[in-house]
Simulated assay, not measured.
Amino acid sequence: MRTNHRLAQLWLDALATELGAAAGTIATYTDDLTCYLGWLKDQELGLDEVTLDRVRDYIANLDRRGYAGSTIARRLTVV
């Protein structure tokens, strides 16, 4: 699952350097990615194995855990 974390870090670096995202934005996306990567690890999935059904499973998991709709929508952006 190291590849997942490497790819996530590359994406965050691109947001910061190429798009000039603010530090707060990067911090929020980092938290959202950490949540998603943790879920992927629990599911024993790599990023290259994610399907639409798995994304739906992730959303359902967030909903069951009581996250607000706005938080779920934001977390979905990192997917």
Rank of each mutant, 00 (worst) to 15 (best):
E49V: 02
D42L: 11
Y67C: 12
I26N: 05
D48W: 00
Y36M: 09
T3S: 07
V50Q: 04
G46D: 13
I26V: 09
R6K: 14
H5Q: 15
R64M: 11
I72Y: 07
H5I: 13
M1E: 12
L15H: 07
R64K: 14
T77W: 01
V55I: 15
D63S: 12
K41F: 00
L52A: 14
K41V: 05
W39R: 03
R2S: 14
A73H: 10
A68Q: 14
A8N: 03
A23D: 13
T25N: 02
R74L: 08
D48K: 12
V55K: 09
I72F: 02
N61L: 11
T3Y: 00
G38D: 08
T25F: 00
R65C: 08
Y58V: 08
R2G: 12
G66R: 07
A73Y: 00
T25E: 09
A21G: 06
G24S: 15
A60M: 06
V79G: 06
G24E: 11
R64P: 02
T71I: 07
D42K: 04
K41G: 10
H5E: 15
V78A: 06
W39V: 09
D13C: 01
N61Y: 09
A14Y: 08
R74A: 08
D42G: 13
A16C: 05
T34I: 03
A23S: 12
G69V: 10
L15R: 09
